[in-house]
């Protein structure tokens, strides 16, 4: 599978990365080179093989239900580019 300008533009939009037309044009051959290379995986016979789920055999630990965190609003907002009245501020979202 190879990507074209439209696909790269779409992927950039999905990834929320603003790209210029020139950047897209540069990315197309680059991504196609990488994709063509990774596609050699298609030749591996994976019949009956499960996708890896845990690289070291291990299962999920569950924690007890207790309130052990929160109440740290200042720390949460400390690095915010725009914080007001205890909220994060973002450009107005119109629904």
């Amino acid at each position: 599978m190879s990507v074209d300008t439209a696909t790269v533009t779409k992927i950039a939009s999905l990834a929320r990365i603003k790209v210029s037309e020139a950047e897209v044009a540069a990315m197309v051959p680059e991504l196609n080179g990488i994709l063509a290379w990774v596609e050699q995986l298609g030749e591996v016979d994976v019949t009956g093989v499960e996708p890896m789920t845990a690289v070291i055999p291990n299962t999920l630990r569950l924690r007890e239900d207790a309130v052990t965190d929160g109440g740290i609003r200042d720390a949460v907002l400390a690095n915010a580019p725009a914080a007001e009245h205890g909220f994060f501020g973002v450009p107005k979202v119109i629904e």
């Binding site: 992927i11 999905l14 994709l35 990774v38 591996v44 994976v46 499960e50 996708p51 890896m52 690289v55």
Partner: peptide, 21 residues
């Protein structure tokens, strides 16, 4: 983003996780 996107997930990502196994 591309390898996870609709229609390509199995061909790329799932296949890669199988090869990883």
């Amino acid at each position: 983003t591309y390898v996870l996107s609709a229609g390509f997930y199995d061909a790329y990502y799932t296949q890669a996780q199988k090869v990883r196994t």
